[in-house]
């Protein structure tokens, strides 16, 4: 019978917290950049301009058909070289965090754009007509009338996607970047207590994600929708 020994966890907490900060940072950047880029993609997809619409459709289909872990690996390989070439960075500069952020943001944008596209389409056509009839341009109608209503309808879906994203950040372990999961793994290996550390990390992910989903559900019911 395996003897559980949790004693290495308390001392490792500060290190694990550093890892958690990395996870949250990646999540936050990917949400913000993903929503901005996803909104642009959704608007391109819905536009009447063929090439823009095809580009957006191709982009979304590509990223939705490739495993996330592969996208991340590409970015760990490509982004550092790119940054070095463009910014003239020192080859020893650690660009893993930046690569992870770029990879996640581009990947999540594909998912966000589909949510946002559905949100834009959920706003009644008459609202667009009313905005135009008041003399608004396409940009004003989008910014002042359509997107605020679309985002209001989409909040629960966007938050749910953010929770999935937070879990997926653990995939950055492929680059040996010490996010929360990576940090737990390292501590476990160092102390020969991998099972305990992974159970602990799993429990932490569960508590955070479960509470967040619960809040989202309450928000959703509170909206009466």
């Amino acid at each position: 019978m395996y003897e559980y020994d949790w004693s290495s966890i308390p001392g490792a907490l500060p290190y694990l917290w550093e890892g958690m900060k990395v996870s949250l940072e990646i999540t936050f950047v990917a949400i913000v950049a993903g929503i901005v880029w996803g909104t642009l993609l959704a608007m391109m997809r819905l536009s009447n301009l063929g090439p823009l619409s095809w580009f957006a459709a191709g982009y979304v289909n590509l990223f939705r058909s490739v495993p996330l872990v592969m996208v991340l690996l590409w970015f760990f390989l490509i982004v550092p070289q790119f940054l070095r070439a463009v910014l003239g960075l020192d080859p020893t500069t650690d660009t893993r965090l930046a690569s992870a952020m770029v990879g996640f943001a581009l990947f999540e944008a594909a998912y966000y754009s589909e949510i946002i596209r559905a949100g834009i389409q959920s706003v009644p056509k008459g609202q667009v007509a009313a905005a135009y009839a008041l003399g608004m341009t396409y940009g004003q109608a989008m910014r002042l009338v359509i997107l605020p209503q679309a985002f209001r309808n989409m909040v629960p879906l966007l938050l749910t996607q953010a929770i999935i994203l937070f879990q997926d950040t653990s995939l950055v372990y492929v680059s040996a970047l010490a996010d929360f999961f990576g940090a737990a793994y390292k501590v476990g290996e160092r102390d020969g207590r991998l099972v305990e550390l992974l159970l602990f990390a799993g429990a932490v992910y569960f508590v955070i994600c479960y509470s967040a989903s619960y809040v989202v559900k309450r928000l959703h019911q509170g909206n009466g929708s």
Binding site: P124, G126, Q127, A129, A130, A131, A133, Q149
Partner: peptide
């Protein structure tokens, strides 16, 4: 418009 179309 028939359905008012105020911005909700």
């Amino acid at each position: 418009f028939q359905h008012f179309e105020l911005f909700p």
